[in-house]
Deep mutational scan, measured.
Amino acid sequence: MDPFVVLVLCLSCLLLLSIWRQSSGRGKLPPGPTPLPVIGNILQIDIKDVSKSLTNLSKIYGPVFTLYFGLERMVVLHGYEVVKEALIDLGEEFSGRGHFPLAERANRGFGIVFSNGKRWKEIRRFSLMTLRNFGMGKRSIEDRVQEEARCLVEELRKTKASPCDPTFILGCAPCNVICSIIFQKRFDYKDQQFLNLMEKLNENIRIVSTPWIQICNNFPTIIDYFPGTHNKLLKNLAFMESDILEKVKEHQESMDINNPRDFIDCFLIKMEKEKQNQQSEFTIENLVITAADLLGAGTETTSTTLRYALLLLLKHPEVTAKVQEEIERVIGRNRSPCMQDRGHMPYTDAVVHEVQRYIDLIPTSLPHAVTCDVKFRNYLIPKGTTILTSLTSVLHDNKEFPNPEMFDPRHFLDEGGNFKKSNYFMPFSAGKRICVGEGLARMELFLFLTFILQNFNLKSLIDPKDLDTTPVVNGFASVPPFYQLCFIPV
Score class of each variant (00 low, 15 high):
Pro3Ala: 11
Phe4Asp: 03
Val5Lys: 06
Val6Asp: 00
Val8Lys: 09
Leu9Glu: 00
Leu9Phe: 11
Cys10Pro: 05
Leu11Glu: 00
Cys13Val: 11
Leu15Thr: 13
Leu15Asn: 03
Ser18Asp: 15
Trp20Met: 14
Arg21Ala: 13
Arg21Ser: 11
Gln22Asp: 15
Gln22Leu: 11
Ser23Arg: 14
Gly25His: 14
Arg26Asp: 13
Arg26Pro: 07
Gly27Lys: 13
Lys28Ile: 15
Pro33Ser: 01
Pro33Ile: 00
Pro33Arg: 01
Pro37Gln: 01
Ile39Glu: 03
Gly40Val: 00
Ile47Thr: 14
Ile47Asp: 06
Asp49Ser: 09
Ser51Trp: 01
Lys52Ala: 11
Ser53His: 04
Leu54Gly: 02
Leu57Thr: 05
Tyr61Glu: 01
Tyr61Thr: 01
Gly62Trp: 00
Phe65Trp: 05
Leu67Val: 13
Phe69Met: 14
Gly70Asp: 00
Gly70Arg: 00
Arg73Cys: 08
Val75Ile: 07
Leu77Val: 07
His78Gln: 07
Gly79Ala: 00
Glu81Asn: 13
Val82Ala: 13
Val82Cys: 15
Lys84Ile: 07
Glu85Leu: 06
Glu85Ala: 09
Asp89Arg: 05
Gly98Trp: 10
Gly98Ile: 05
His99Leu: 11
Ala103Gln: 09
Glu104His: 10
Arg105Tyr: 07
Phe110Met: 12
Phe110Val: 06
Ile112Leu: 14
Ile112Gly: 05
Phe114Trp: 07
Phe114Thr: 11
Phe114Tyr: 11
Ser115Val: 07
Asn116Leu: 03
Arg119His: 08
Lys121Gln: 12
Glu122Lys: 10
Arg124Gly: 01
Arg125Leu: 09
Phe126Ser: 00
Leu128Ser: 12
Leu128Gly: 11
Met129Phe: 13
Thr130His: 14
Leu131Asn: 03
Arg132Pro: 07
Met136Asn: 14
Met136Trp: 14
Met136Ala: 15
Met136Asp: 13
Lys138Pro: 13
Arg139Phe: 15
Arg139Glu: 08
Ile141Thr: 10
Val145Arg: 00
Gln146Arg: 13
Cys151Met: 12
Val153Gln: 03
Leu156Tyr: 03
Leu156Gln: 01
Lys158Tyr: 09
Ala161Phe: 06
Pro163Lys: 09
Pro163Glu: 11
Pro163Gly: 08
Asp165Gly: 02
Pro166Trp: 04
Pro166Arg: 01
Thr167Ile: 06
Thr167Gly: 13
Ile169Gln: 09
Cys175Pro: 03
Cys175Thr: 15
Ile178Pro: 01
Ile178Cys: 02
Cys179Gln: 07
Ser180Leu: 07
Ser180Gly: 10
Ser180Lys: 08
Lys190Gly: 11
Asp191Pro: 03
Asp191Trp: 01
Asp191Phe: 03
Gln193Leu: 10
Asn196Leu: 10
Leu197Glu: 01
Lys200Asn: 04
Leu201Ala: 08
Leu201Trp: 04
Asn202Lys: 14
Asn202Asp: 08
Glu203Asp: 12
Glu203Met: 07
Glu203Lys: 04
Asn204Ser: 04
Asn204Ala: 07
Ile205Phe: 10
Ile205Lys: 13
Ile205Thr: 14
Ile205Arg: 13
Ile205Glu: 10
Arg206Thr: 09
Arg206His: 11
Ser209His: 14
Ser209Tyr: 11
Pro211Asp: 06
Gln214His: 12
Ile215Pro: 04
Phe219Cys: 11
Asp224Tyr: 08
Tyr225Ser: 09
Phe226Trp: 13
Pro227Thr: 09
Asn231Trp: 11
Asn231Thr: 15
Asn231Gln: 14
Leu233Asn: 03
Leu233Phe: 15
Lys235Ala: 13
Phe239Arg: 15
Ser242Asp: 11
Leu245Pro: 01
Leu245Gln: 09
Glu246His: 13
Lys247Ser: 13
Val248Ser: 03
Lys249Val: 10
Glu250Ala: 13
Glu250Val: 08
His251Gly: 01
His251Glu: 04
Glu253Trp: 09
Ser254Gly: 08
Ser254Ile: 07
Ile257Pro: 14
Asn258Ser: 13
Asn258Val: 07
Asn259Pro: 04
Arg261Pro: 03
Asp262Met: 01
Asp262Thr: 02
Leu268Pro: 00
Lys270Leu: 08
Lys273Arg: 12
Lys273Tyr: 10
Gln276Gly: 14
Phe282His: 03
Glu285Gly: 09
Asn286Cys: 04
Val288Leu: 08
Ile289Pro: 06
Gly296Gln: 14
Gly296Cys: 10
Ala297Met: 06
Thr299His: 13
Glu300Met: 09
Ser303Tyr: 05
Thr304Lys: 15
Thr305Tyr: 04
Leu306Lys: 00
Arg307Leu: 09
Tyr308Pro: 00
Ala309Pro: 00
Leu312Met: 12
Leu313Arg: 01
His316Thr: 06
Glu318Ala: 13
Ala321Glu: 13
Val323Lys: 00
Val323Leu: 10
Gln324Asn: 10
Gln324Lys: 12
Glu325Arg: 14
Glu325Pro: 01
Glu325Ser: 13
Glu326Gly: 01
Glu326Ser: 01
Ile327His: 00
Ile327Val: 10
Arg329Asn: 07
Arg329Ser: 13
Arg329Glu: 10
Arg329Ile: 11
Val330Leu: 05
Gly332Pro: 03
Pro337Val: 07
Pro337Met: 02
Pro337Gly: 03
Gln340Ile: 12
Arg342Cys: 10
Arg342Trp: 09
His344Tyr: 14
Met345His: 01
Tyr347Trp: 07
Ala350Val: 00
His353Met: 05
Gln356Pro: 01
Tyr358Ser: 05
Ile359Met: 07
Leu361Ile: 14
Pro367Gln: 02
His368Gly: 04
His368Glu: 01
Asp373Ala: 06
Val374Asn: 00
Phe376Asn: 00
Asn378Gly: 14
Leu380Trp: 14
Leu380Tyr: 06
Pro382Asn: 03
Lys383Trp: 03
Thr386Asn: 08
Ile387Tyr: 00
Leu388Thr: 06
Ser390Met: 07
Leu391Lys: 00
Leu391Arg: 01
Val394Phe: 02
Leu395Lys: 03
Leu395Tyr: 02
Asp397Gln: 03
Asp397Arg: 02
Asp397Gly: 03
Phe401Gly: 01
Pro404Leu: 02
Met406Val: 12
Pro409Lys: 00
His411Phe: 02
Phe412Glu: 00
Leu413Trp: 04
Glu415Leu: 09
Glu415Asp: 14
Asn418Glu: 12
Phe419Tyr: 06
Phe419Arg: 05
Lys420Asp: 03
Phe425Thr: 02
Phe425Ser: 06
Phe428Ile: 04
Ser429His: 02
Arg433Gly: 02
Ile434Phe: 10
Val436Lys: 01
Val436Asn: 01
Glu438Asn: 07
Gly439Asp: 15
Ala441Thr: 07
Leu445Glu: 04
Leu449Trp: 02
Thr450Val: 08
Phe451Arg: 14
Gln454Val: 01
Asn455Ser: 11
Asn455Thr: 09
Asn455Asp: 07
Lys459Val: 07
Leu467His: 11
Thr470Arg: 11
Ala477Lys: 13
Val479Asn: 15
Pro480Leu: 06
Val490Phe: 14
